[in-house]
């Protein structure tokens, strides 16, 4: 028996919008720790890892570990039927081939339940080793989204370079080139508007902008984003979900032959 009640149901709606472009089908894993997902995109270039900790739910009952295969487009269709202020409860019985999403309006005057068929998905769970990153950039998530969008109108790839001067995003295409430098800026009114660079040593990596733009679908989940970079490792683009967990995207770099 599984029963997860999330008062801030809009979080779940935003999570689905954040991952459904990248991944078509995925297993949602439920354990005492929380509600999680790990999946690669179809070309195995990017990986998304989601965690919603059990403590973040108003009610969390998960009698045994359960893995539920879902088509994310279909989950998104169901969750779009929930109001933005609705409380969402996810329910499943042991051995059942369906999951139920229950939506309650804030004043309890409307209650809806949507039952969705589960699917069998063969997915490989990857071990993500703890890594010391050469540079971690924290910046406003909206600023990062703007940079990725702007650069993708010029080129297909971005070189992200971190030095003590700041973080530079560069691209080149048929019509020309573009460079955007963001300097460390801690002296802002609100901490979420700061750009903070923790650098052990300079690092420069090349990535496909198409994937980074897909990651920015998570922007509504968090005011800030952190970008962790090391030579010869996938970049980690993390959006924290307040008090609950995170959506992390890993993107394999482009490597000179």
């Amino acid at each position: 028996m599984l029963e997860l009640r999330l008062v801030q149901g809009s979080l779940l709606k935003k999570v689905l919008e954040a991952i459904k472009e990248l991944v078509t089908d995925a297993n949602f894993d439920c354990s005492a720790t929380g509600f999680s997902l790990q999946a690669m995109d179809s070309s195995h270039v990017a990986l998304v890892a989601l965690l919603l900790r059990s403590e973040g739910f108003e009610h969390y009952r998960c009698d045994r570990n359960l893995s539920m295969g879902m088509n994310l487009g279909n989950v998104s269709k169901m969750l779009r039927c929930a109001g933005s202020d609705d409380i969402i409860t996810i329910k499943a019985d042991d051995g059942s081939d369906t999951v139920t999403f229950m939506f309650e309006s804030p004043n309890q005057d409307k209650i809806a339940d949507f039952e969705m068929k589960l699917m069998d998905i063969d997915s490989e769970h990857l071990g993500i080793p703890d890594a010391e990153y050469q540079a971690i950039v924290r910046m406003p998530s909206g600023e990062f989204a703007r940079i990725c969008k702007d650069l993708s109108s010029i080129g297909d790839t971005v070189i992200i370079s971190v030095t003590k001067e700041g973080v530079k995003f560069s691209t080149a295409g048929d019509i020309g080139t573009a460079n955007i430098v963001c300097r460390q800026n801690k002296t802002v009114d609100k901490p979420e508007e700061a750009t903070v660079i923790e650098m052990q040593e300079p690092v420069s990596l090349t990535f496909a902008l198409r994937y980074l733009n897909s990651f920015t679908k998570a922007t509504p989940l968090s005011e800030t984003v952190s970008i962790s970079l090391s030579s010869d490792l996938p970049v980690v683009v993390e959006y924290k979900i307040a008090d609950m967990g995170y959506v992390r995207y890993y993107l394999a770099p482009k490597i000179e032959e």
Partner: peptide, 14 residues
């Protein structure tokens, strides 16, 4: 040019 690597080059199946 640069070649796109894949995630499984870096992270192994658990």
């Amino acid at each position: 040019g640069a070649k796109q690597s894949i995630i499984t080059n870096f992270f192994k199946i658990a």
